[in-house]
């Protein structure tokens, strides 16, 4: 890994929520260190309250780390003398899509909502128009430009929210459980959009989720537990550690579960492909063909 490729570099990040009386509460994130490269598709797993959302909110300084160093795009954002302009620049570069689509749309018309971010950047009107049209086009919502957001389906609202973020042309987008409130088809819409942004536009993507099947689509998986980074690897590497995952309240995809149990019965299945049905099918087929010979 070449150093210049690293986009996000976190070193010993800590964060604690404070109670009303100012006394420190349970630390939500402890000594968290990770490097994320440009163009990576990273899934972040962890049960509710594991600290994964806190981690995301630190990356664009919605929360300020209690201690530690964070460098985003070569700029150290944990510096004491960070200017307001630098903060705005950070938020422009690291966009965020939240869980509840209703609570992140600001305007009563779709295109005006998408324009909200770029408007805050103070762009020219022609440039605003271009970006809004382009962003709506990318998420496939052009035909809804004049609609009222509250009449859209959950998946559509979430795509509008994504358009609002990509209209700022960020380098990285964080999805904070953005599929949790959607039905299967809405989830599919959002996941396809995420993948498209990563593959076709080279955006760095962090998908915070507790759906294992979603994590299987990423290039890399981080598992967070109790505010610490517990595992870091490819989906296959992570899902191979089934017992450890179960110990922290997570499960593995059904396919992975199946391979584990078959291996437990003494059936030889060689290979690492255990995260997706396609890879898993290859594995089983391979074993079957070997038997029939």
């Amino acid at each position: 890994m070449i150093l210049s490729d690293i986009y996000i570099h976190a070193e010993n990040l800590c964060f604690s929520y404070r109670e009303g009386n100012g006394k420190e509460e349970n630390p939500a994130l402890r000594d968290f260190s990770v490097e994320i490269c440009e163009g990576e598709y990273v899934a972040v797993l962890g049960h509710n309250g594991s600290g994964k959302s806190t981690f995301a909110k630190l990356l664009n300084l919605i929360l300020t780390p209690t201690s530690g160093h964070l460098t985003v795009g070569g700029v150290e954002v944990t510096r004491e003398d960070l200017s307001d302009e630098e903060i705005l620049n950070l938020r422009k570069n690291v966009g965020m899509v939240f869980q509840n689509p209703d609570n992140q749309l600001v305007a009563t018309v779709v295109e005006q909502d998408v324009a909200f971010g770029p408007e805050n950047l103070g762009l020219e009107r022609a440039e605003l128009r271009r970006r809004v049209d382009d962003a709506l086009e990318r998420v496939g919502m052009t035909q809804y430009a004049k609609h009222e957001p509250h009449r859209l389906s959950g998946g559509q609202k979430q795509r509008v929210a994504i358009a609002g973020v990509i209209a700022m042309m960020p380098k990285c987008i964080i999805f904070d459980e953005s599929t949790a409130m959607l039905d299967p088809s809405g989830r599919r819409e959002v996941l396809d959009t995420i993948r498209m942004l990563n593959r076709d536009y080279g955006m760095t993507v962090l998908n915070i989720t507790h759906y294992m099947n979603e994590a299987a689509e990423a290039d890399r998986v981080l598992v967070i537990n109790d505010g610490r980074l517990l595992m870091d690897g490819t989906p296959d590497e992570i899902f191979a550690r089934r017992e450890e995952l179960q110990a922290v309240g997570l499960e593995v995809p059904q396919c992975t579960e199946l391979v584990h149990r078959l291996r437990g019965l003494g059936i030889a299945l060689k290979g690492d492909g255990i995260s997706t049905p396609d890879a898993c099918a290859d594995l089983i087929l391979h074993a079957y063909e070997k038997l029939s010979k």
Binding site: L88, N103, Q104, V106, E119, N120, G122, L128, V132, M168
Partner: peptide
């Protein structure tokens, strides 16, 4: 709760009041 989430989302989208803001 909605207000808190919305203000977070607005901050993430670089909202910093009316200064220097343009309109579509």
């Amino acid at each position: 709760n909605r207000a808190v989430e919305l203000s977070n989302a607005m901050e993430c989208r670089c909202y910093h009041g009316g200064d220097g803001r343009t309109r579509l």
